[in-house]
Design a protein around this nucleic acid. Structure first.
Lengths: 143, 143
DNA sequence: CTAGTTGCAAATCATTTGCACTTGC
DNA sequence: GCAAGTGCAAATGATTTGCAACTAG
């Protein structure tokens, strides 16, 4: 939400960029697709096109302000990059996303990469499953 | 490459299915996109449409014969499922893919999922990096 | 002022689908 | 013979791009 972040990334401070940053920072939903962001803009009566949303999100990603994930097959979701890296577990039925980090997994990844002659620049670990929460549609009816 | 596998999956044994299975089994390239498979079919002068390739690959996936991965952003790649599960590390520059398994990572994943109230149905761990091999385009010129 | 930005519409890419025509069993 | 399978073309959904108008510095 800091204009300074934009400037540091070599991006002019414009209304679309500030608005989109604001929406991402308003952590109601931490993981949003371009469409999601666009809809919020429409709700807020901002006159910003979907193409701009995509462009801005891509620039934010390049600037390291935002991370792009591919949870579902088709659509990418974006998440404001607030310090620490983390992995994700996604519920196949209700779409709920939980985040976690595990040092031993991270260590192991680095070891494996080294052993195979790679230098890791990025990695994604996504677990998919069914969550055991009340809201979740798949839950079997109680007997 | 066994017709029996098809039958077991409840799929009729047809030319397109056999040909596609054959191409996947010919492990020149273990990870192929639908386009890749289609091109091989064209090379082999088989009269099989791209739509059929997609349909067949999707059926194979449903039948557990094949696994679908999302290494790059847009395109999915398919891999013949030969027994053991494994994860992947992909070179950003040359596209080389290496496979690995790590029991301790698998264990940890299960623990984490349980702790967060999920039952894992699937997971994908993809490391991205640069490989230190001769063929790789990014390699710095020797000084 | 002017390079960087944006909106819109049209273009692209990967994948899916409708439908009339084959083909396996 | 008939349901299942296929080819083709058109439809879809996500994302990108060309371009003329706009705006931040």
């Amino acid at each position: 939400m800091e204009p300074s972040q934009l400037r540091r990334a070599g991006l002019k401070i414009t209304v679309p960029r500030l608005k989109i940053l604001e929406i991402l920072a308003d952590n109601q939903t931490r993981h949003m697709s371009a469409e999601d962001v666009y809809r919020r803009l429409l709700d807020a009566h901002e006159d910003i096109g979907l193409a701009t949303v995509y462009r801005v999100l891509t620039q934010f990603e390049a600037a390291g302000l935002v991370t792009r994930h591919h949870f579902a097959g088709g659509t990418a979701v974006f998440e404001l990059d607030q310090g620490e890296h983390h992995d994700h577990i996604v519920c196949e039925d209700c779409g709920r996303v939980e985040e976690f980090t595990d040092a031993s997994i991270e260590d192991r990844q680095r070891e494996i990469a080294t052993r195979l002659g790679f230098k890791i620049t990025d990695h994604s670990l996504i677990l998919r499953g069914r969550c055991v929460r009340d809201g979740c549609p798949h839950r079997p009816p109680p007997p």
